[in-house]
Structures are given as structure tokens and as C-alpha cells.
């Protein structure tokens, strides 16, 4: 049986999506979501070749642009909401930077009695978690206010497009969601309210696609050319699978040899399993259980480690 959700590592250099198709004997037709590629959404030849079989690109990036042209009021409202969300992210970052600096310094401090410093570390971490929770709640409030006021699903232009997309998905065997710009992808998936529709199909997702279908979306890079490099909560995802925080290309984007940094990350998001979704890696979700492929690693409080088989559900 095909798992409900399959999360893959990045596909650019070592595509493995074709292996999944072969392993589960998928014949198609398939639906493709490449909205994270934005204006390159339609450049999906390599992906089609990798999966084989008939495939239809749902083109939800393009569909959203067409919708915006048709429903200008909704477009303006969405732009205003996104501006609000960006400003909120900046405000969150201001609070987060200080809290993370403090937590990181405490984690790095050596030579102190554990009984003395342990509670300080935990308290600093709880402060960070509290800021994350607050931010997630504020993001939810802004989204809810928008939905209450503009009732997107009851708007004719959107409903018509959504219905067409739903029909296309209904006619396919599985849906493939590629990476790219995670906020653009998430916003398009949300705009057309695709989560309830995707719940009924096997979904194979990677990179930003994997992030968008999970519970929570965390942005991360330990050494960006600018900024502090503190991971940030962006939003909730579609929650097509639960309990895993996918970290695409973690070995490239995170200092996985820095046990303190890895430990801080894992403890901050302790309620989720932080999984290094590196090239050629795969994890399968058949509710309520995860099945890790070979070589999957997770971030733990002691550093990077193989997926802990003791806690796969």
C-alpha cells in the first residue's frame, strides 16, 4: 500500500522520486504542484521525466495570479495580509534574536554545576518556545481575521477554480509537491484550501513541499550571509502528516557537527521530530506511524543521530 505521505530529500542533484514511483508501482496519472518555483512553475520537464506516466501540472501559482486578476478585492486583501505577516515576522525576529542569543550562550557555558545552570537553560529555552507559540498564534489570528472578513471559499472566482483543481486531483493516482519558495507554495496551497482534498491522495513531497505538508514550518540556515541565522517559525503547514519537522538539505544548511547548536534546535522544537531531509533520504507516513528509509538522521538534544526507532509513531 502506498503511504499517505512520502517525504523526500532534495531532488535537484540526486532525484529519487522515480524510485518511489517504481517501488509502489504507481502508473499515473499524476498531479504536480510546482508553485514554489513561482514563474518557473511550468518548467517541469525533468520532473515529468523522472516520474514517468501521464502528469498534469495543477499550475496553482498561475491559477492564483489569474484569480487575482479576476477578483481584485481579494487580491488587495491578500496583499495587505501578507504585508502584515511580513511585518509580524520582523517583530518576532526582534524578540527571538535576543532570546536565542541568551539560550545559546547558556548552552555554551561550561564548568557550571548542572543543578545551578540546568534550570536556567530550560527557562531560556522555554522563553524561546513561548515566543514561537505567541508568533504562531498571532499568525493564526491574522489569517483567521482575513478569512472571516473576506470568506475566500465563498467567492465565486475562487470556488470555481478550486473545484476544477479538486476534480483534477480526484482523477489522479498521486500528487507530487516540489520545493522552492516555501511561503509562496504554502500560500497557494492555502488559498485553494487544498489540504482536505490532498488528504485523500498519496502525496510525495520534497524540500519546501515537505515543509508545507507538515505540521509546522520552520525556516532555518545556520550561516546565512546576513542575519543571525536563528531558525524561525513561519506558520503552520497543511498537517497532511504529523510529528515530523522536515529540514531539507540540513547537512548543507545546518552546522550538524555543532552538538550545542543541534541540541538547542532539537530541544526548542522538542514536541516534533526534527529530521534531516538530506539528498536520497526518505520517510514514509502511514498514519499513525512513520517509517524511516535508510540513513535518515534526526536532531537530538545530544547532537545529530540516526532516526530513533523507539519512537516512530
Amino acid at each position: 500500500m502506498t503511504p499517505r505521505v512520502i517525504l523526500l530529500g532534495p531532488q535537484r542533484f540526486t532525484p529519487t522520486v522515480g524510485d518511489v514511483v517504481s517501488e509502489f508501482g504507481l502508473k499515473g496519472p499524476f498531479a504536480l504542484i510546482t508553485a514554489g518555483w513561482q514563474e518557473r512553475e511550468g518548467e517541469d520537464e525533468e520532473l515529468r521525466e523522472a516520474i514517468g506516466g501521464e502528469a498534469v501540472n495543477l499550475a496553482i501559482y498561475d491559477q492564483a495570479n489569474a484569480l487575482y486578476r479576476e477578483d481584485k478585492e481579494l487580491h488587495l486583501a491578500i496583499r495587505a495580509r501578507q504585508t502584515q505577516l511580513r511585518e509580524l515576522q520582523d517583530l518576532y525576529r526582534m524578540r527571538l534574536d535576543h532570546a536565542m542569543d541568551a539560550a545559546y550562550r547558556l548552552m555554551r557555558t561550561e564548568g557550571k554545576d548542572e543543578a545551578l545552570i540546568g534550570p536556567e537553560r530550560e527557562s531560556a529555552l522555554e522563553m524561546v518556545r513561548s515566543i514561537d507559540r505567541h508568533h504562531l498564534a498571532r499568525v493564526g489570528e491574522i489569517r483567521a481575521q482575513h478569512d472571516t472578513r473576506y470568506r475566500p471559499l465563498s467567492r465565486e472566482a475562487l470556488a470555481r477554480r478550486r473545484e476544477a483543481i479538486a476534480q483534477r486531483i480526484h482523477d489522479t493516482e498521486a500528487v507530487f509537491i516540489a520545493g522552492g519558495h516555501v511561503a509562496v507554495l504554502l500560500n497557494r496551497l492555502r488559498l485553494f484550501e487544498l489540504a482536505p482534498i490532498l488528504h485523500h491522495k498519496p502525496v510525495i513531497a520534497w524540500s519546501a513541499g515537505a515543509m508545507a505538508v507538515s505540521d509546522r514550518i520552520v525556516l532555518f540556515h545556520d550561516a546565512p550571509p546576513q542575519g543571525r541565522g536563528h531558525a524561525e517559525v513561519l506558520d503552520r503547514g497543511l498537517a497532511l502528516c504529523n510529528g515530523v519537522l522536515p529540514l531539507p538539505h540540513a547537512s548543507h544548511r545546518l552546522a550538524l557537527d555543532d552538538d550545542t547548536r543541534v541540541g538547542l534546535f532539537a530541544r526548542r522544537f522538542f514536541e516534533l521530530r526534527s529530521v534531516a531531509l538530506d539528498p536520497e533520504v526518505r520517510v514514509d507516513w502511514t498514519p499513525p506511524r512513520w517509517a524511516p528509509g535508510p540513513g535518515v538522521r534526526q536532531l537530538t538534544r545530544d547532537g545529530i543521530a540516526p532516526w530513533d526507532a523507539e519512537a516512530t509513531s
Partner: peptide, 18 residues
């Protein structure tokens, strides 16, 4: 150049996961 250009013209690194 990296520090200068990425400050003047920030790229989509933080938001993009290919």
C-alpha cells in the same frame, strides 16, 4: 563581494528550499 552583494540585494535563501 558576498557580504556586500547579499546585503544590498538579499536573495531568497531564507525562504527557498529547492
Amino acid at each position: 563581494l558576498r557580504e556586500g552583494l547579499s546585503w544590498l540585494f538579499p536573495g531568497p535563501l531564507w525562504m527557498t528550499y529547492e
